[in-house]
Design a protein around this nucleic acid. Structure first.
Lengths: 126, 126
DNA sequence: ATAATATATAAATGCTTCTTTATAGATTCT
DNA sequence: AGAATCTATAAAGAAGCATTTATATATTAT
C-alpha cells in the first residue's frame, strides 16, 4: 500500500496519519464528491463525459440543452470536486472525466460500509 | 436479469425501456441517494450503522455527539432516500442500514461511467 | 482594428439545506 | 393519574445552491 504522511489540519492537532493513496478519500472529501454528484444536471454531464475522451464546453452545452453559464456553473463544481479536468486550447475548453476519482468514490463508499479498514477508518466505540 | 418495461417520461417520447431491477436507479433516484450521502454527518451515521445490525436513535445521537433533533433530521433524509430503515419498538426507534441500496448506488455509479447499458441508459447523440 | 466566438464571472432571485431551540406525541414507569 | 423518556416535528435563521440575464475576458477571423 502506497502511503505518505500529512498533517491533520482540521483537528488543530499536529498528527501524522498514514493515508492509502489508492482510495484516499476522507469523510470530507467523500462528502464533496458525493455532493457534486448529487444533482441531475451534473450526473448527465458525467454520463455524457463518460462516452468520450474529452468534450468541449459548447458541445456539452448543446448536447445537454442547458445554457452556457449553467454548464459553466456545474462544470466548476465538478472540477472543484476533482471529478473532471479541463484542458484549454485556443478559446475552447475541453472537459474530461477523472475516472479514477469516481473509482475512489466507489471504493470509499464500499469501505465505509463493507470491509473495515478499506479506504475509511472505522469507529468502534459502542 | 429481471426486467420490466416502463415509459420514458423525461424525453416526452413514449418509449419502452428494459430496466435491470438489480440496479434500478435512474438518474433522479441516484441523485437523491447521492445527495443524501453528500453530508458529513450523514456519512458518519452510515459509517456507524455499518458496524451494527441496528442501533437506536438515542445511541446514535450519543455516539456521534449530535443533538437529537439534528439526528432525527438527518435520519429522515437518509430514510427518504431509502438508505436506512426504521423499526419502532416501544418508545425507541431502531435504525438499520439498507446495504442493498448502497450497493445499487455503487452499481449505478459504475454503470454511469463504465459498462454501457449496465444500470443506466446511455445517450450517444454526438 | 473590428467583429465574432468561446468561456467565465457577476448580480440578482427564489429555493433548499443545516442547525438550534422549543414543543408535541407517544410510551413506559411510579 | 402524573412524571419521565424517546423521538418527531415546527419555527426561525443563516448559509448555500441552482438558474437566469447581463457582462467581461480571451482568442480567432476578417
Amino acid at each position: 500500500m502506497a502511503t505518505f504522511t500529512r498533517v491533520n489540519a482540521s483537528s488543530g492537532v499536529l498528527k501524522e496519519i498514514k493515508v492509502d493513496l489508492d482510495s484516499a478519500l476522507d469523510l470530507r472529501e467523500l462528502r464533496t464528491v458525493l455532493k457534486a454528484l448529487g444533482d441531475v444536471e451534473r450526473l448527465r454531464i458525467v454520463q455524457l463525459l463518460a462516452g468520450y475522451q474529452e468534450i468541449s464546453v459548447s458541445h456539452l452545452t448543446q448536447a445537454l440543452r442547458i445554457s452556457q453559464p449553467l454548464a459553466s456553473w456545474h462544470l466548476r463544481i465538478l472540477r472543484k470536486a476533482g471529478i473532471i479536468s479541463r484542458r484549454k486550447e485556443g478559446r475552447q475548453a475541453y472537459c474530461s472525466l477523472n475516472r479514477c476519482k469516481l473509482a475512489q468514490c466507489q471504493e470509499a463508499l464500499a469501505g465505509l460500509v463493507g470491509r473495515p479498514g478499506a479506504g475509511m477508518a472505522r469507529q468502534d466505540n459502542m
